[in-house]
Design a protein around this nucleic acid. Structure first.
Lengths: 185, 185
DNA sequence: CCTGATTGGAACATCGGTGTTCCGTTTCGG
DNA sequence: CCGAAACGGAACACCGATGTTCCAATCAGG
């Protein structure tokens, strides 16, 4: 019954993304309940919390990679590619929160990762410098940080204010576009 | 010896801001250690964790209010006031993280606060609409969200990358300025 | 110097989350 | 239909954080 195992496993991961997105400190019991599964069963699939978080991270990365591919970063001007990337990422919804919270928690144990961002992303920004649609004063790392912070802020804005998904996306795209645009002065 | 009490209390609060800024889930023991104080003493001043968090929040709000006053929101163009506000808030350093994390944690227990932002802040944005330095398409709430997210992103950027305080502030100011600027098109 | 305030440390009980074991029940597949 | 796999729930031990109590040491001021 390997089909059943895979289905249950995925249900747990999906529930975890949902619950942890809302509350990163949620207990395993909460996650199990959300997945309509006993806490015992959850432990049958993931030995400890770290295991589950690892699987959640992998799933999030996979969805992220899919969204990145869908944005076709190599096409059009640099700025237009940034717009598409924002749109695709925004559609990820709750996965955003998970990735974001994971990025925050990773800062503690002395990662000290001066690692540059994704090479495909960097290439997109470089192209933007050359075609005059992205401000050369802004490093690629900073552009990435800008996109993430705006996506997260928009996600929170949608939850706190009574703003529609569509309206928030419009605000995000407009704000990011203005932020990376080459200055007239 | 009421002077001693006030001094100890302040030392604990300062240590709490420092430690909680780095790790919002820090234990009371960690905070006491950082304050060079026994855990017992900490409990003497703050009955439980909630009490301490309340005091920390009050202190953060006070420093925030001082910074807001220093930015003189009523002077100059809307955009220039935003620049001054970013600069003042950036200087708050770790207090930023505390306020930010507090804002996140508050989202759970069904606050449902559609409350608009500070009236003084709203007036500044309104002025920006009229004097043509702030994009009228962006609600005041959104501008506030933008400023906060950029400040936080910049703070994180400074920690993760090896960027100087000054350089990060420059990036923040440039990014925010571009984001709120009226579009040429 | 002495008295009271302040402090730190040890010990203790409590609580929630975690991980494990065990057993009875349900469900799927041959 | 039958056996094995999967499941749920109860019970248990463990751990770290928390809050409380008690006592001895220290400090500050009259």
């Amino acid at each position: 019954m390997s089909g059943s195992r895979a289905r249950t496993r995925q249900a747990i991961i999906d529930a975890a993304i949902d619950v942890l997105g809302r509350n990163p400190a949620a207990s395993l019991g909460d996650i199990a309940t959300a997945a309509d599964v006993g806490r015992t069963t959850l432990h049958r699939y993931f030995a400890d919390r770290a295991d589950l978080l690892k699987a959640v991270g992998a799933e999030a990365d996979a969805r992220l990679a899919r969204a990145t591919a869908a944005a076709r970063l190599a096409e059009g001007t640099g700025a237009s590619a940034v717009q598409r990337l924002c749109q695709e990422y925004f559609d990820l919804g709750n996965v955003l929160s998970v990735v974001f919270n994971a990025a925050l928690g990773a800062g503690d144990p002395e990662h000290a990762e001066p690692a540059g961002c994704d090479p495909e992303f960097a290439a997109m920004v470089e192209r933007g410098y050359r075609d005059g649609t992205i401000d050369p004063e802004l490093p690629a790392d900073w552009v990435q940080s800008l996109i993430w912070s705006q996506l997260y802020a928009g996600w929170a804005y949608q939850g706190e204010m009574g703003a529609s998904r569509h309206e928030v996306l419009r605000l995000i795209l407009r704000t990011v576009a203005g932020a990376i645009a080459v200055r007239p002065a």
